[in-house]
């Protein structure tokens, strides 16, 4: 497996949070509660952090959201080959269960009506019911975070 390179600097969740905090500047209570909620998805242990990370990155790529794409969850390893595949939407490098997660994540932003029963059930078959609910919840909020970044930030190209 490839090693991380300087092109993928690890960033802590705390630093990631700093990206969105200014958006909530007028509502610190709301921000505090959002952080607690978002962190719980990453720390509950119901679904692996790697699966969360690859789905988060794929959604960031779909939205072309540089803010979300530019950081990496520090204790999750995703190789440069895998990052390139996530950029292209090629899931063949991932294992069967990860592919099931990515296929649903792929449709969340703009094709949610096209998510098939079988695709959701493939996640449940691979990870279990509780993990499937945890993953689908997290994926929804990965989509939300990209939309926040894109709508509430300058549209000057990066």
């Amino acid at each position: 497996m490839d090693k991380p390179t300087a092109s993928t600097p690890p960033t802590s969740i705390a630093n990631v949070a700093a990206l969105l905090q200014p958006i909530f500047g007028a509502r610190p209570e709301l921000w505090s509660r959002f952080q607690t909620f978002y962190d719980s998805m990453w720390t509950s242990g119901q679904i692996s952090r790697r699966v969360l990370e690859i789905c988060r990155l794929r959604i960031a790529s779909i939205h072309d959201c540089s803010a979300e794409w530019s950081f990496r969850t520090v204790d999750v390893f995703v190789s440069d080959v895998e990052l390139d595949a996530l950029r292209r939407g090629d899931f063949s490098a991932f294992d069967h269960c990860e592919q099931a997660a990515l296929h649903v994540a792929e449709k969340f932003p703009f094709q949610h009506d096209d998510i098939a029963d079988a695709e959701v059930q493939a996640i449940e078959a691979g990870y279990g019911s509780a993990a499937a609910v945890a993953l689908l919840t997290a994926v929804a909020f990965f989509d939300v975070r990209c939309r926040w970044h894109l709508v509430m930030s300058s549209n000057v190209p990066n």
């Binding site: 209570e29 509660r33 607690t36 909620f37 119901q46 609910v133 919840t137």
Partner: peptide, 17 residues
């Protein structure tokens, strides 16, 4: 949501706020 009790509770706390 019972599957993700801690996360769901945190969400409803956020949503109520």
């Amino acid at each position: 949501l019972g599957y993700i009790g801690k996360t769901a509770a945190a969400f409803f706390d956020l949503y109520a706020e």
